[in-house]
């Protein structure tokens, strides 16, 4: 009897713990409770840090506290689904990382589109660059093409069907090169793979060369050079042009979110992103700011979506 009771205790407390998980509050005057920002990557990753840096100013502007949550998984799809399905009351917003979320949406045949979500603010535009080891004999795009013809070249990507993988394939087609595709778990391991000599090159966000003297950028995959590393040419200057995927971090709200709420969020982010506490941080860390708000951002994101859609066969 004693045992049965004790077992019941386990079951009841387990059930209570599960039940305590859900429960939503009614929407009244906005914002009357904390705003949750859902991040598809771990605490300490780029978008997470951006928001933490802005947090004090944002909280002052919005008059409520921010809760940063990480919902990792499925290439950003889980976080996106969570926000898409949440109450469109402005209390749950998504830290969006393009093209990652966009590429995943397309490759995983998502039933909704990121285009339909309410766009709040775009923070940065970080172009990709071709990265090789510092002591690599490859000094230019021409060298890379030559090397790939005569050697067993290899390329590190952050996962098959991911953004780095897609950008590499688009580039390989344009340059007419061939190499072994080696997938790693995420972007940073790809830089490590270049450093320890596993692979010949990787295509990753340019800022990895900013504080690492073991790797070198061959060229930037963009139309214009970036201010943080002005000596590195663009691939356009080297005579090649193809669609460039730019890493762009921003914030989105569920599709049905009322416009007044979206506008309040836009205003708050506009102040926070232009505050010296954020701009100084961005300057010190070589972040390529590209502030676009509201519908303008939505239009741009939709254009990026359609552009990636052309390459659906690669995914």
């Amino acid at each position: 009897m004693k045992k049965a009771l004790a077992m019941l205790l386990v079951l009841v407390s387990a059930a209570l713990a599960v039940y305590a998980g859900g429960s939503e509050e009614d929407l009244s005057k906005w914002p009357s409770k904390p705003i949750h920002i859902i991040n598809q990557s771990a605490a300490g990753s780029g978008p997470d840090l951006f928001i933490r840096q802005m947090q004090p100013v944002l909280q002052k502007e919005l008059g409520t506290s921010l809760v940063l949550e990480s919902k990792e998984g499925s290439g950003g799809k889980l976080a996106c689904d969570y926000v898409w399905n949440s109450n469109p009351d402005g209390y749950t917003i998504l830290a969006h990382s393009s093209p990652l979320t966009t590429v995943t949406q397309i490759s995983k045949d998502c039933e909704y589109s990121i285009k339909d979500m309410k766009h709040i603010a775009s923070i940065d535009a970080t172009p990709y660059a071709v990265i090789v080891r510092a002591d690599s004999p490859i000094k230019s795009v021409a060298d890379l093409i030559e090397y790939c013809k005569t050697n067993n070249a290899s390329n590190a990507n952050s996962g098959i069907g991911g953004a780095m993988f897609l950008q590499s394939r688009i580039m390989a087609d344009a340059l007419g090169i061939d190499y072994a595709e080696v997938p790693y778990n995420g972007g940073q391991p790809c830089t490590l793979a270049v450093m320890n000599g596993d692979v010949t090159f990787t295509v990753t966000s340019f800022d990895v060369v900013m504080n690492n003297n073991q790797v070198r950028a061959l060229c930037i995959l963009a139309d214009e050079r970036v201010a943080a590393i002005p000596d590195v040419p663009t691939i356009v200057e080297e005579g090649y042009t193809f669609p460039f995927l730019t890493m762009r971090r921003g914030l989105l709200a569920p599709a049905e979110t009322p416009d007044e709420i979206v506008q309040k969020l836009v205003d708050a982010f506009e102040v926070a992103l232009n505050d010296p506490s954020f701009t100084d941080y961005a300057a010190a860390n070589g972040i390529n700011l590209d502030l676009i708000f509201g519908e303008e951002y939505q239009a741009l994101d939709a254009q990026i979506y359609d552009e990636i859609m052309q390459f659906v066969d690669y995914l």
């Binding site: 840090l49 900013m210 010190a284 860390n285």
Partner: peptide
Amino acid sequence: FGIPGSATSAVLMGLLMIHNIVP
């Protein structure tokens, strides 16, 4: 190298960067 060896050192790096100490 600015490449964190663990999740914790990744956040630590974030903290450094916020205080403008660039690894």
